[in-house]
Simulated scan of single mutants.
Amino acid sequence: MTNPSSLYSGVADMPVRERQRLIAIIDDDEDVRQAIRDLMRALGFAAEVFSSAEDFLRSSHAGRAACLIADVNMPGMSGLDLCHHLSEGGRAIPTILITAYPTADLRSLALAAGAVRFLTKPFLEADLIEGVQVALGQDRS
């Protein structure tokens, strides 16, 4: 079995305090949530999962998340809507938006809303990890 840290050598170079900041994973698909959480934890990141944007916003973790990985298409508030909501409330969190239904317009909207990455499912683990590193580098909390 491959050592998860070898998936992206830059993670091992990150200070432990960087890897312990919270990554919130928001997706209505349980398998996707758990797979991303397991990957993040295997790499030494602190990670919590939420089945909806509303669940995340109601949680005690909303105020301390350093990075979001959110699905675009979810019942209720979408990942894109979540980005707007947080920005409008003065609490923009570096976000990686993921979707199985990409369009050029959606990509443009996501990046304009401040997403640090826009990934199409299925995506490479290395692309997600690189996005997390970028996101954590932007968060100064």
Rank of each mutant, 00 (worst) to 15 (best):
M1W: 04
M1C: 09
N3E: 12
L7R: 06
Y8G: 11
V11P: 03
A12E: 14
D13V: 02
P15K: 10
E18S: 13
R19C: 01
R19Y: 08
R19S: 01
Q20S: 11
R21T: 09
I23K: 02
D27V: 06
D28S: 11
D29Q: 13
E30R: 13
E30H: 10
D31N: 11
V32P: 04
V32A: 11
R33I: 04
A35P: 02
A35Y: 00
A35T: 11
I36W: 03
R37K: 11
D38H: 06
L39E: 12
L39N: 10
M40Y: 07
R41L: 14
R41T: 15
R41E: 15
A42M: 13
L43N: 01
L43S: 09
G44P: 06
A47Y: 02
A47I: 02
E48R: 13
F50W: 00
S51A: 09
A53I: 01
E54D: 13
E54R: 04
D55Q: 13
F56W: 03
L57P: 04
R58S: 14
S59W: 08
S59Y: 04
A62Q: 13
R64A: 02
A66E: 07
L68K: 01
N73S: 13
M77P: 01
L80K: 05
H85I: 08
E88F: 06
E88M: 15
E88T: 14
I93S: 07
P94L: 07
T95K: 11
T95W: 01
L97Q: 06
I98D: 02
T99L: 04
R107A: 15
R107C: 15
L109K: 14
G114L: 04
A115K: 00
V116R: 07
T120G: 05
F123A: 15
F123I: 10
L124C: 12
L124Q: 11
I129N: 03
G131F: 04
Q133A: 11
V134A: 00
V134D: 06
V134G: 00
A135K: 03
G137T: 07
G137W: 00
D139L: 06
